[in-house]
């Protein structure tokens, strides 16, 4: 029997306090009427109102969302293809290079990825803007998607695909009707991961964004460089709120799905 000691309880409490207090403080101070960080001058939603009137921030937010949706969608398609190639395509010429190119971006410092893509875009004369940020984000997030999806592909029973082929499916039909439904949870979490990575990225976007397109992290970074700003506190609170809501929804949905699955399994046993 495992013993959960007082020391364990203290480390968990301190650990989670450390992880969550800074964000809780940020949220509380976003409702502070005073511009000063330490002085509490009463509850106010003034900074939210000012934020909503700040067009530069709204524009940047819109650019960021468009980049994230498009790049994570392309990255999910490419990453799933790459995972399928890695796990199912067997040996082919240049396989080592291929798997190297999938894993290298995961450990590559962002400054290098950003710098190298910028030099490429300048080299081929592509104007920096939304398109270049999308290309950059797609490239590094497809590698994350392919790692997530291939771990699921490895663990599933290949004979299911073979059965579909034996029963007369084309390889594409077998993928669509058998493989895709089974790996769907991994594909969805790959998309979510790619989406968050894109929303979050400052360094690579700084290199690949042009004057015509600024993303939210670039805007936030230039605003907070000089110190704490109450408008950014409000913006952060909104972002933390969205993430928390998203995670809670996702966990409720997956919990319901697993309950339903259990119920179905029990019904099957009874029948």
């Amino acid at each position: 029997m495992k013993r959960f000691s007082a020391f364990n309880a203290v480390s968990l409490t301190l650990g989670f306090a450390f992880l969550y207090l800074p964000m809780i403080i940020l949220v509380i101070y976003s409702f502070n009427a005073s511009k000063l960080v330490t002085v509490w001058a009463g509850f106010s939603t003034r900074w939210y109102a000012e934020l909503l009137q700040n067009e530069a921030f709204l524009d940047a937010a819109w650019v960021t969302i468009r980049v994230a949706v498009v790049s994570s969608t392309i990255a999910t398609v490419l990453g799933t293809m790459a995972a399928y190639v890695l796990v199912r395509a067997g040996r082919f010429h240049g396989r080592t290079l291929f798997s190297g190119m999938i894993y290298a971006p995961l450990v590559m410092p962002e400054v290098i990825t950003g710098l190298s893509l910028l030099l490429l875009f300048i080299g081929i004369g592509l104007d920096r803007g939304i398109l270049t940020i999308i290309l950059a984000h797609t490239t590094f997030s497809m590698c994350y998607v392919s790692v997530v999806v291939s771990s699921r592909l490895v663990s599933f029973d290949r004979s299911l695909e073979e059965a579909a082929l034996d029963l007369g499916c084309t390889p594409f039909e077998a993928f669509r009707l058998v493989t895709l439904p089974i790996i769907a949870p991994a594909v969805i979490s790959g998309w979510l991961l790619a989406f968050t990575l894109s929303l979050d990225d400052l360094v690579i976007a700084s290199f690949t964004a042009g004057p015509s397109a600024t993303t939210l992290p670039i805007k936030i970074f230039s605003a907070v460089r000089l110190g704490v700003s109450p408008e950014i506190n409000a913006l952060s609170t909104i972002m933390i709120g969205i993430v928390t809501l998203g995670v809670i929804t996702a966990s409720l949905v997956s919990k319901r799905a697993s309950i339903r699955q259990q119920a179905e399994a029990q019904a099957a046993v009874r029948a």
Binding site: N233, I240, V243
Partner: peptide, 16 residues
């Protein structure tokens, strides 16, 4: 959960 919230914001939180 913190991993899903913006890295930039988590660093910024410590400035205040």
């Amino acid at each position: 959960l913190p991993f899903w919230t913006s890295f930039l914001i988590r660093v910024y939180a410590w400035m205040g």
